[in-house]
């Protein structure tokens, strides 16, 4: 009785697994099939495309740099410092991963907008407004992408043998030397994986950006925004741009696979 059942299960699993894979592959195949390859060069070399691509790269790389600057210390605190409310704080700072990005954009407006909690002070005190600026794009992208870096680096720090840091201290290394010459180099794979993941997330960011930073070519119109708006006027061009985004993301994920799975 048990034998035939045992033989049947892998087949059913295989079928479901195949369906699961097809569910992801078919939309991509559709994009590939419907893309007007003949117009690809024209669509890609259009000034507004290049402008959006440039802005996307600048903003996403800046967002990644900001994520590293603020996210690594945050991950360090989560991994090394015990304090009441740590889990709650971690959950709060991880929220953007599951929050609809538009909600994130609204939240950013309410905090950093002209009438926001802090934004009001910024405008009155320093004349700084963040919505509708490239800085606003960077903020929106950082908001949604930094959690990826924080979680990855925290995991790396937790799996690091902290006795290496003790060994460094017995050799006379102070806090910063230990951090710079031992801790960070040892968690380099996690740092790299976290940075690339958060960069990829920033590159694809749409909802928070359009909500918080609006849409203006050359200033706040990133690739995903251009794709979305082109879909209405020139769908073919938007297919091509979608493929560019897709190729970048795929390259990142394939390149990252080994490091991600084999992270220390």
């Amino acid at each position: 009785m048990t034998r035939p059942r045992r033989e049947r299960v892998p087949a059913a699993l295989g079928l479901l697994a195949g369906l699961g894979a097809a569910f992801f592959i078919l939309p991509l195949a559709g994009l590939l099939a419907r893309a007007p390859w003949g117009d690809a060069l024209t669509a890609l070399s259009a000034p507004e495309t290049l402008e959006a691509l440039r802005l996307s790269l600048v903003a996403s790389l800046t967002a990644t740099a900001v994520s590293l600057l603020l996210g690594v210390p945050l991950a360090w605190v989560y991994a090394r410092v015990e304090f009441p409310g740590r889990n709650l704080l971690r959950a709060l700072t991880t929220l953007p991963m599951v929050l609809p990005p538009v909600v994130g954009g609204i939240a950013l407006l309410l905090a950093f907008g002209r009438r926001g909690l802090l934004g009001m002070l910024l405008e009155r005190g320093f004349g700084i407004t963040l919505p509708f600026t490239t800085a606003g794009v960077v903020m929106a992208e950082t908001f949604v992408s930094m959690p990826f870096l924080v979680l990855t680096v925290e995991a790396g720090l937790r799996s690091l043998d902290s006795r290496y840091e003790e060994a460094a201290r017995t050799l006379g290394a102070g806090r910063w030397t230990v951090l710079g010459r031992v801790t960070l180099p040892l968690i380099a794979p996690s740092l790299f994986a976290g940075a690339v993941l958060s960069w990829a997330r920033a590159l694809g960011e749409f909802g928070a950006t359009i909500t918080f930073a609006g849409n203006f070519p050359g200033r706040t119109q990133t690739m995903p925004l251009a794709v979305y708006l082109l879909l209405e006027s020139r769908p073919e061009a938007s297919f091509i741009l979608s493929l560019v985004l897709l190729a970048v993301s795929l390259a990142v994920l394939v390149g990252l696979r080994d490091r991600w799975l084999g992270s220390p």
């Binding site: 407006l109 907008g113 002209r114 009438r115 919505p131 509708f132 359009i210 930073a213 609006g214 849409n215 203006f216 070519p217 706040t220 119109q221 979305y228 708006l229």
Partner: peptide, 21 residues
């Protein structure tokens, strides 16, 4: 000179309502 080209009319209204524009 517009500061943003919103995806639809509602985007314009909501940003004005929020005081951002």
């Amino acid at each position: 000179a517009p500061r943003s080209l919103e995806a639809d009319v509602k985007g314009v209204v909501s940003k004005v309502a929020l005081g951002e524009a």
